[in-house]
Design a protein around this nucleic acid. Structure first.
Length: 646
RNA sequence: GCCGAUGUAGCUCAGUAGGUCAGAGCAGCUGAUUUGUAAUCAGCCGGUCGGCGGUUCGAAUCCGUCCAUCGGCUCCA
């Protein structure tokens, strides 16, 4: 007998070779029907794998992340089996589970898949799922595995196997399909009740652009049909938050093919919103000791040769522009830092001047690949809320922390709770990608990690994601459909000061090199506004929204009174509109609701008599009658509450 | 840049075995209505059916190409 410890710390005895499924059965039949896999001593196993020694076991169901993972991973196998049957000769790459479902990268040779094929595959999968095919694990030697897949002619699997260490390799067999796989899998395919193949895309083998592009088929499956329906409804709902859609509805921004792809045009209301965000940040930065500067949209190519950006990105950028007579070359500036370095250099600096915090809402231009352009989140012209801090080496940590304060202040004010912090370090195996000395890299990477720990940030480290000149800390937020976008960024840079030969005179009367911190708490105004729109579904906080209230006269008899209300609100700095159309008030309310205007002020005979307004809050409803002074106070109070001083 | 898809009025969309197929709703304009918490009624205006080529007696519809957009991949200073 072996001793099995369950999550509630109870211990039960079972015969050697017991399976998690059998353990589940001993608890309840219902549980046994829902067990997808099990965590045995911290490792996820098949529910039918035999346990030989004393272990701790946690049974995994659809409610566990690992349970879903096994479910979707098995679904990927099921899809592969269906594809192999429908399209014999298909070669298989990798087929993992992902956050929302799974995919399989396949090579269909000459034949390409289209959406009609997806339906066929779905049908086949459903058929195979109903056969309750089991997933049989087979542990074989590396040579045997190589032999199996070379017989099949599957070069992708062979490549994967050849990179594995010698020893046992596990294969899983379900129906007619056998895959190289670590597992674990569902007890059988009958668990998979609802199947939806969502999209088809090209994906480079092993993520390498220089290698063959395979066909990636994405799908998602569920144990119940109702859950699939629910998921599809949720996707529809998420689409309603899409900033591209809301931006159009609320007339915030647009694009024009005549201007060019990826070049956003900010409409009056969008520009208004954006300006308010800028003012908000400028105020905080002023308190934090930043000074605003302004620099041109172009700069001599030499500037970027000096900075190293030209060598790194010159070929992938907009081509240089040049003066007609001399042919002197200029670049549309892809970043602001070289300009700021020149501002630093315009006079000698003393250690007493440092840190210098130089801020600019600088518009930059980058050639983004056509396939990458995406609404306001990925554009070719955007405005960074940029600043560069020039400081002494021993000021780096404090300055870095000061920037974190600003980022946290912004996130708190705008109610961004769900963000992740990512620390990007260089790839030690690929050092030629980076510039700068070994010593400085080590120093700055350590500094970032130390500060992150000190601030208690819940961060994750990404190796190889650093900028070419230094490591960075990024703040990521998800959009409506779950994609992660980088917003704020803080980067330590020992390199540009070197290249631009920046100096300051120390207390020792010797020349020293400052350190630069690049930072942008919003990241870019475009991307930030995009994510903000999706975050609040267009219902901006009162302090930020372009129009705070709209006055709705019951009929045009009350337009005069509406104008009076409008003037009074204007005098107390409240942004309002009047809807003077000859429409019924129900119609005016509907339109104002759709425009997400926070307050609707209905005025008619009663209000004019009493010199009041009838207040309706967007998406909440009628709040009753207010004097204009009381309403103004309410608005100001709400603004005060939602935006604290930095 | 690569893979797959889409592109019809300002917006949302209908219309393709090629032939009164250029349509609807909303928006806009005009008029009527004078309205009490999510759509008043009527009339009118509006499109070289993404651009350019081709096939055909005839193309929104078929083919080619380019552009843009959407979902991914790669990239992201």
């Amino acid at each position: 007998m072996i001793r099995i410890t369950l999550p509630d710390n109870s211990v039960r005895e079972f015969p050697e070779g017991v399976t998690s499924l059998e353990i589940a059965k001993s608890i309840s039949e219902g549980l046994a029907r829902n067990v997808l896999a099990a965590k045995v001593n911290g490792e996820v196993w098949d529910a039918k794998r035999q346990i030989q020694h004393d272990s701790t076991v946690k049974l995994l169901t659809w409610n566990d992340v690992d349970g879903k993972s096994a479910f979707w991973h098995s679904s990927a196998h099921l899809m592969a089996e269906a594809i192999e049957q429908l399209f014999p000769g298909t070669k298989f790459g990798i087929g993992p589970d992902v956050e929302n479902g799974f995919y399989y990268d396949i090579d269909t040779g000459e034949r390409t898949l289209n959406e009609a094929d997806l339906l066929e595959i779905e049908k086949k999968m459903t058929e195979l799922a109903r056969q309750s095919q089991t997933f049989e694990r087979k542990d074989i030697s590396k040579d045997a595995a190589l032999a199996h897949f070379s017989e099949k002619g599957d070069e992708y699997k062979l490549e994967l196997i050849s990179e594995l260490e010698d020893g046992t390799i596990s294969l899983y067999e379900s129906g007619t399909f056998t895959d190289l796989c670590r597992g674990p899998h569902l007890p059988d395919t009958s668990f998979i009740k609802a199947i939806k193949l969502t999209s088809i895309a090209g994906a480079y083998w092993r993520g390498d652009e220089t290698r063959k592009q395979l066909t990636r088929v994405y799908g998602i499956t569920f144990p119940k049909k109702a859950e699939l329906d629910e998921y599809l409804v949720m996707l529809e709902e998420a689409k309603k938050r899409d900033h591209r859609r809301i931006g159009k509805e609320l007339e915030l921004f647009t694009f024009s093919q005549n201007v060019g792809a990826g070049l956003p045009l900010w409409l009056p209301k969008g520009a208004d919103l954006r300006e308010r965000l800028e003012t908000f940040l400028k105020k905080a930065q002023k308190r934090a000791g930043y000074e605003q500067v302004n620099t041109p949209h172009i700069g001599s190519k030499k500037l970027y040769v000096t900075s190293g950006h030209y060598e790194k990105y010159g070929q992938d950028s907009f081509r240089p522009i040049s003066t007609p007579e001399e042919g002197e070359e200029f670049l549309l500036k892809p970043m602001n830092c070289p300009h700021h370095c020149e501002i630093y250099k315009y006079k000698p600096r003393s250690y007493k001047d440092l840190p210098i915090r130089m801020a600019e809402f600088g518009t930059v231009y980058r050639y983004e690949q056509t396939g990458e352009l995406h609404g306001l989140t990925r554009v070719r012209s955007f405005t960074q809320d940029d600043a560069h801090i020039f400081c002494t080496p021993d000021q780096v940590k404090a300055e870095f922390e000061g920037v974190i304060d600003i980022v946290m202040y912004i996130f708190k004010t705008l109610d961004f709770k769900d963000f992740t912090t990512q620390i990007s370090l260089r790839d030690p195996g690929n050092k030629q990608k980076y510039i700068g000395s070994e010593e400085n890299w080590i120093k700055s990477e350590q500094a970032i990690i130390e500060v992150a720990k000190k601030r208690g940030l819940n961060f994750q480290i990404e190796v190889g994601e650093a900028a070419f000149y230094g490591p960075k800390m990024d703040f990521m937020v998800r959009d409506a459909i779950g994609r992660k976008w980088q917003l704020g960024t803080i980067q330590i840079d020992y390199n540009l000061p070197e290249r631009f030969e920046l100096e300051y005179v120390g207390s020792d009367n010797q020349k020293h090199r400052p350190v630069m911190i690049h930072r942008a708490p919003f990241g870019s105004m475009e991307r930030f506004v995009a994510v903000l729109i999706e975050h609040c579904a267009g219902k901006f906080p009162l302090w930020l929204t372009p129009d705070q209230c709209i006055i709705l006269p019951i009929s045009d008899k009350y337009n005069e009174y509406a104008k009076k209300v409008f003037e009074l609100l204007k005098n107390s700095d409240i942004r309002s509109l009047i809807d003077e159309r000859a429409e019924k008030v129900g119609r005016k309310i509907r339109d104002a609701e759709l425009k997400r205007i926070p307050y609707m002020l209905i005025v008619g005979e009663k209000e004019e008599m009493e010199q009041t307004v009838s207040v309706r809050r967007q998406s909440e409803g009628d709040l009753g009658s207010f004097s204009i002074a009381d309403f103004s106070e309410r608005v100001h109070e709400e603004v005060r509450k939602s935006i604290e001083e930095f």
